[in-house]
Design a binder for these strands. Structure first.
Lengths: 173, 173, 173, 173
DNA sequence: TCATAAGCGAGACGGTACGTCGTGTCTTACG
DNA sequence: CGTAAGACACGACGTACCGTCTCGCTTATGA
């Protein structure tokens, strides 16, 4: 898998030549399928982080959030270098941005919304406590923590984030 | 200033040659001072984001946080491309990581702690509401929002983050 | 032809970049074919001085020698700068030396030997008058004269060399 | 002595920095005395090859020539790399050429002429056998042999050159 | 069963930036 | 005041990678 090379060497240490060799293929074939190294990497990333789109449905909002947060941590830790590289490249290309948006971000957003909606239906929180603008505070912060060196998010990070920040916010009314 | 080129072209569109020309200098001189392009860019970034280390002291925690959040937004918006590039490179070099830590992160952390400590002293919040692990939720999330395309953080983002997330968390006891 | 640039500017005024541009190519391609600037220049030199390997066969040793001498003069005058550069570089590299030996020197030696052998067969000179050690007195001296400034060898030089030095030596028995 | 570095590394492996260090001096001082690396090297070469200008006066032309030839061999072998480098550089600079001419070539020419003149006076050869154009056949050829790799001139080379080429030529009348 | 076409590997190529090195000039500080 | 130390502008070298391309070979189909 191409992702392995990505995780091992990081984006710019990765050469298309190496990917081709790894795939027992040739550069031309790679470029026939993906128009650029960036798109190749983005596709591999999206492929490698494809997750269940159904909410965990553990029965409580808190454990749902903990589950999602842990999952984000795992992925972010594995693909940290890839994510930062993608962020770099994305600034220059609206197509990449759109691809990331439609194939990655939207799923996560829907997942989060489902979890919150179900919590509302269960009466755990009020609908007005949900902030559409801030749906990605948890994943965003956890990803951020994975990108900067020295402080990768842990289980404790997620628990503190959920218990001491998100839950107080969602139950503030 | 070298930063100008960075903001205009982004990290990998930036050439050391161009920096040298801009500085009416030569590549050799650049490389004499900074061992690599990455270190040059990191130094420029740190230099360009050197800010006041004193808390805003507006008198209330909420407005202090709004002030800091707005400042983070401004800088993150300006140096978004630079930040993602630095994050990419940092994974490969402990030295870079240490430099970023000591010359950038620690100042921000101290600033945030000062603001919170003063709020405790003013009686606005309780000391135990402060979470050392999560001191960077606000800046971290705002930076994250600046890095992903399409949703740069706005004044409204900061206000929602402070009023609906941070303040409920800090006043939860 | 790359040789043109060599003759115009001399070895160290010549840049690989210029050669690439001249060839409507790129530096990378040049370096793919020749491992260094020196080898590139040596190859161009050998290519540019590839001559007939058959003796002139004018019927007399004297005119054969004059013909060869004149030819040496022409080439040495054209490629003087190249030759001295090659001599400089060759001292450091046995490979270059071997290449020059096998692709340049040996042909000249054979040519000279053929001319002398035929003269022996025609009865013009005795075989024992031929000195294997000194087969290159004429070309060597003419090249030397081309390398030092101010005294390029002329037609008169060759004639004097043949008539007053070589022929007396070869017919001394 | 600067010459030592020259002989060890050759012209272009030699750096002015190294010469300065060797001389416990600084580059600026070197450049104050000699306007360029080439002139520095030329000066060192001329200094290092300054020889007696008086003829050997062994009593016979043959041994005089052998003596001179052997001396040329020794010097050429030691400074081969330097000589080829000087020849390279000289093509671009009339001043260098003039310096070499007046401080090196002319002495050698005079030496050779003295030897031949005395031989005439001794009755060994006729004056008309002396060819002004070809006064440097012996040193020129020996230098050439020192420059090309693999065939440095030996004692046998000199003897053959004198006995089988020069003497027949000089005694041809 | 053999011929012809589509697809793939292998890798050369043009281009561009990197980081290194050496020359010759210049400034600074010391003796 | 001259010199050692060394920073500096300039420019070439050789390397690496990207994205494009051409060339044979192979494989899958049509007569």
């Amino acid at each position: 898998m191409t992702l392995r090379l990505l995780q091992q060497h990081g984006y710019d240490r990765l050469t298309v030549e190496a990917v081709a060799t790894e795939a027992k293929s040739s550069k031309a074939t790679i470029y026939r399928r993906w128009p650029s190294k960036t798109e190749l990497v983005l596709a591999a990333f999206i492929e490698g982080t494809r997750v269940q789109l159904v909410p965990p449905r553990t029965g409580s909002l808190r454990t749902d959030l903990l589950t999602i947060g842990t999952s984000v941590c795992t992925q972010a830790r594995e693909h940290g270098s890839t994510m930062s590289a993608i962020m770099s490249e994305i600034a220059h290309s609206p197509e990449l941005s759109a691809a990331l948006q439609s194939q990655f971000v939207l799923q996560r957003k829907k997942l989060m919304r489902d979890v919150l909606t179900e919590a509302v239906e269960r009466g755990e929180i009020e609908a007005r406590a949900i902030h559409d603008e801030l749906w990605d505070v948890m994943p965003g912060y956890l990803v951020f923590r994975s990108l900067i060196p020295g402080r990768p998010p842990t289980e404790a990070t997620v628990r503190a984030l959920v218990d001491d920040v998100l839950m107080p916010s969602l139950t503030r009314f």
